[in-house]
Every structure is written in C-alpha cells, then in structure tokens.
Design a binder for these strands. Structure first.
Lengths: 352, 352
DNA sequence: AGGTACTGTGGGAGCGCTCCCACAGGTGAT
DNA sequence: ATCACCTGTGGGAGCGCTCCCACAGTACCT
C-alpha cells in the first residue's frame, strides 16, 4: 500500500528535490541555477553546482516540457520522400548549416519526412500536439497547405524557398533569379547562341525564378528566349533525360543547355552522349547546385553554387528569434515579415 | 490572485479531463480508450471517440512521458560527421528501411550525429536524460565507448555492424565475409590472377570480415593472398586514391582490384585512369555497396549489394521488441543475445 | 442464500519540473 | 525611527497525463 508512490523510482535518476536537499537549498533555487537565472548569490550557485556534479543530475525533459510548456526541439520538415532527400545534396548542406548553428544551443533537431499522404497525416497530428517549438520548412510546393496549418497553430516557422513572391512566412532563399542570369550570361559570353533551359518543378517558386532569370538574361542581350528551347523538368535525373530527348528532337541545333539542377544536367549529359554530341565542343552544359555530382561528372560540370549551408544557419537564426519573442500572431503584419535572399556564385568547369 | 493557476491555458488545447467531461465518463476511462485498452465497453468507447473527435483532442506528449516514464521516441545515432552520412548511400538505405518499419507505429525517429567530440558530449547528456526509449547504432568503431554507455544506462539498443565477433549488443549485419568471397570468386572465375584489395577502415569489424573473405577465397582456390596486394583504405574516395597509388607503385602487374566500398572504387578508378590502365581490359574493378555511384561510373561498376534497407527494418523490429519486453539487464546473458546476418548479392557490370 | 470471480468504471496520487507569491534581511532616503 | 525598495530564497500549486486501488454490477458456481 505504501509502495504505491514509488513507481518508476527504481533506476534512481536524481531529481531537482534531491539536488536541493544535498546543496541545502530550496527547490526553486536549484531550478534558478539550472536555468541560469542571475538572481542567485555566487556562494549558493557554487553549492548547487557542486551538488549537481556529485549526483550526476540531468534535468527531466518531460517534466520541464510539461511545466514550462515548451519542448526545446525544432523540426526540419522535408515534404519529400526520403529518396529525394538523400539524392539532392541540397538537403545535406542545409543540415550542415542547421546543425552548426544549433550546436551551441540546447535545442534538439528533429528530421521529419512527409512525402506520402500517410506521413503527412502523421505530421499534422505531430504538429497539432505541439511537439516542437518551431518548424523549418524546406522544398515546399506552391499549393502546399503545410505553411497555413503552421500559421493557424501559431507555431513559429521559417521557410526556405518561399512559395511565391507573396510568402507570408519568414523566409530564407538564395538568389535564383541572379544565379540563372549568371549561368546564361556565362554561356552567351562564350559564344553560345542556342541556349536551352531544362526547368525545375515549376510549382516551386525558385524554379520559376530561374526561368525568369534565363529569359531576362537572353532578352537583355537582345535575343529573346525561344520558347521551343524551354522544356519542363522536375529537378530529377529522369526528368533531365526526358527533357533533353524532347529538346534534341525539337531543336537539334541547340549548342548549350542550362539545367535547373546538377542531377538534371547529369540526365541531359547522358542523352547528349547517346546522341553523339560532345561536351562542351558541340553542346555546353551548365547545372545548378554545384554538388559533388558536378565535380565528378565527365567532363566536370559548370554549376551555380548556392550558399546553402549559410541558408541553413540563417534559417535557424531567424527561427530561434521568432521562438524567443513569440507573441500573438495577430500583432504581426505583412510589413513585419522577414525575407532574406543570399547571393549565388557561378563555378566554371570544363563543361562550358 | 485567482488567475494564478490558469497559466498557459490560453490557446486552449483540450485536455483529457475535458474530453472525459464531454463524454460523461471519468478521466481513467478516456485514458484507456486513447491507449487502446480492451477493458472498455463498446458504447463507452464510442462516446469517448466522439468526444475526442469533436474537441480535436490530441494527447500531450510531455505529460504522458512524465507520467508513464517513456518517450515514444528512438534515436538513430550516427557517430560520424554529417558529411559522411550523406556521402554514403548506406545511411540513406538504412533510413528508408527504418522509416518504413516505423511508419505504422507511434514511435518518433530522431537522427543524431555524433561526429565531433562536442557532439559526443551532447549525446552523452542526451542519453543520460533518457530522452529516447531506444537507440539504433550504425557504423560504430571497435573502440567506441558508446555501446557500453548504453548498456550501463540500461537503454535498449541495436547495433548494425557488430564491433567484433563478441558483440554483446543485439546486432544486425550483412554477410561481409560472404560478400567479399563472392567478389573475389567472380574475379578469379574471370581469369584474374593478381587481385588487389583496398580495405575499409580496419577498426570496423565488417571491413575486417571483408579482408577475411578476400583471403579465404584466394586460399580456397590454392592461391594464398599476397600481402603486398592488400592496402588499407578508409571507405572514402581519397582513401581509394591513396591506396591505389600505393598498390600501383608496389605491384604494377596487378590485374584486378576489389575495393571495400564503391566510393573507394571511384578513387581507385581515377588513379587507374591516370596511370593509363583500361577498365576492365587491363584491370578489373569491383566495389562494395552497389550504390548509385556504381551504376553511374564509367564503366559501370560491379559491386556487392547489401540488403541495407532490410537491415534497417530488422533493426527496428528487434529494437521495438527489446523495448517492449524491457527487463533488468541482469537477467539477460550472452546466450540470449540476438545476432542477425543477412545475405549479400553480387551485381556484375562492365567493370569486371 | 452465500461465496468467488470476473468486467467496467471513477478518481486519488504522483511523475519532476517551472512559475510565482511570500517573506527575510539588507540598504538608503526621509 | 519609519518607510520604500531592493536582492535572494523557500515552497505551494499546478502542468496533463498514467497507474492502480476501490468498488459497483453481473455471472456463475456451490
């Protein structure tokens, strides 16, 4: 009958109360020390810290989360199947930046895939349960309901790659327009005149911006884009293969291809090879992302580098701020939204 | 004065208590329904489910974790820098298997990198805080203290790639020995006689087993391994480059190379090319992992395929079992340990 | 009739924290 | 001396669950 209350006490992880007893202070004081409150005398602080060390005390996260109504965790939501996550180096760089920026924080990073419908339903439940303090959204399509759901739940969120020019969430992006321009300008300056473009998924805002950059660069040198030279891809290698086949059939005289991703360029390269076109002699090729694939391709691929790691860092930076000064969503208007755009860089190699 | 107790009630997520009131039952009954206990009458269950739906009730995980002393989360610990995680397709396949097996579970998967010392210290804290119910360990080196720490904390764990033949943790592995044998037997049967081996990191048990398989396969055809033909690598591309250079300098007459990973083979290929050796005409090349790199290499690379996704599934399977029948570690002896080994398959391509 | 044994249910106690009120003791102005 | 106002500190109450005891009700034996 008396054993009732001791449930789970078996292993014996020390509690705040025990630390307090050991240090000869009250529970509240230990809590203040643990959480770095300045309202503690130096002597008391030292005593508590000693007790913590002796007992090997580690705060119970669940209890803290329950009492303080926060989780000390943020989620990186990837609305794609795992396959794409690993196939595209983009994600690996984002993770690196995010990890670096998070490393001197108590925040835990969760990686959540939401590619399938089933996974998305789970995610919705997850977010509704407020299991994270904030969300990092990457690679979101224009019609994705996720951002709105986050807004409704009043969960702080930062999106990489805004859904449109009118994105309401705090966003971080690289200069897709400028990146595409620099690629095309590079090809033009190397004497190419029939420059094709294999786009990314056009429901991704960044892909649209790259098309805009492509168009404007050509227009600005007095050679408006030939629509026949634009073919929709989807960022994948297979998409590159399909698009390149279509382009070659339609415009056999093309002498350059600007692909919206390196893997797409890899697909294009394969088709060009099969068609007997030499790179760069017959057709120059430029990719996007400057991934490992670009460096290892034969010939090495000219590509637009995005400062992705830096984007990851910036996203965390903004998210943590947003979590810290969390306030009623009502008080924040469009005027106050934050949109960060980082510059790209063209890395030239043998393919162009 | 009276507002004191209402802290945090602002947003108004419904609680168990509110669901109970709405359904006209007690708190305990709602809890039973939520947790799928069979000891509830059908009528009551229906009433509670209706109330849950109407209120949009989602259980508070922190409260549950605190009360029940479990977290419903497991961690996949990667004791490597992020770079390697993304560079090696091994991890992506493990994740896929793990994710698939976890998808009809309430368990949440956390991905934790512990490449640097700093990250490892954080991880130790993390595990000490019992923030996960179980741990999946991949790519662990022989001298890693992590597994022992887990054992001491009595946290259920499954390791992929046992540290040694005497591994005490539950483990899942592919047949490294058999995989290496099949690669070498293939090369022998295609008339190669001077077969070199670039090993993986030899502090990884699987890498040792591959060397064993290589040695035994040669011995069994009456041609014991020439130690000069064995060069240590580290699973990386740079390691492959270094090792291949050394081998070429030492044994210019080699006519085949078996590399312990596809990326290592890629490094070797590069050196062989530079040295003017044709693949497979002059030197046959076989890799390990059957990754995308193998398929895209020029020429396509013969490689040993491991059922990695299946390994991921199996690991989760074992881990969930272990969590479910968690019992004092004392009661479990060596005799009871589980070691699963899955078969490999040689995928032959143009490089051999 | 009484006993035994189930099934289903309500609700107290407790998980380990944070928050905040209360208050002791010091300091300086009036 | 009195008041106001600091700084540090202790500890009650409460976060939203799960666990388990208690007990009513029913069923089936003796």
């Amino acid at each position: 009958m008396a054993t009732h209350g001791t449930r789970g006490r078996s292993g014996g992880r020390p509690t705040l109360e025990e630390v307090a007893a050991r240090a000869g202070v009250g529970r509240g004081t230990v809590s203040r020390v643990i959480n770095g409150s300045p309202r503690v005398s130096d002597a008391t602080r030292a005593a508590v810290e000693a007790a913590v060390a002796e007992l090997g005390y580690v705060p119970n996260t669940a209890a803290r989360a329950l009492a303080a109504n926060r989780t000390d965790a943020i989620a990186l939501v990837v609305p794609e199947p795992e396959t794409r996550f690993f196939a595209e180096p983009y994600f690996s760089d984002i993770i690196r930046g995010v990890g670096a920026e998070l490393s001197d924080t108590e925040m835990q990073l969760l990686l959540i895939f939401a590619g399938s419908d089933k996974e998305r339903r789970r995610l919705a439940q997850y977010l509704a349960a407020h299991r994270v303090d904030g969300v990092l959204l990457v690679s979101v399509h224009a019609d994705d309901p996720l951002p709105d759901m986050l807004a409704q739940l009043e969960i702080p969120a930062v999106i990489s790659g805004p859904r449109s020019a009118a994105e309401t969430l705090t966003s971080v992006d690289s200069d897709n327009y400028g990146g595409a321009r620099s690629a095309v300008e590079h090809l033009v300056s190397h004497g190419r005149s029939r420059i094709a473009h294999i786009t990314g998924r056009l429901d991704v805002y960044g892909a649209q911006r790259r098309v805009d950059g492509y168009r404007d660069a050509l227009r600005d040198v007095g050679r408006p884009a030939d629509e026949l030279l634009i073919e929709a891809g989807d960022f994948t290698e297979e998409g590159g293969v399909r698009a390149m086949r279509a382009l070659l059939a339609r415009c056999p005289d093309l002498d350059a291809v600007f692909a919206a991703s390196d893997v797409t360029a890899a697909g294009a390269r394969q088709v060009l090879r099969e068609a007997g076109r030499r790179i760069p002699d017959d057709v120059a090729l430029v990719g996007y992302d400057d991934s490992a694939i670009a460096r290892h391709m034969d010939p090495p691929l000219t590509s637009v580098r995005q400062p992705i790691e830096e984007m990851g860092r910036k996203m965390i930076d903004l998210l943590l701020t947003e979590i810290a000064d969390r306030r009623p969503a009502v008080s924040r208007g469009l005027a106050e939204r934050t949109q960060v755009v980082l510059a790209t860089e063209l890395v030239t190699r043998a393919s162009s």
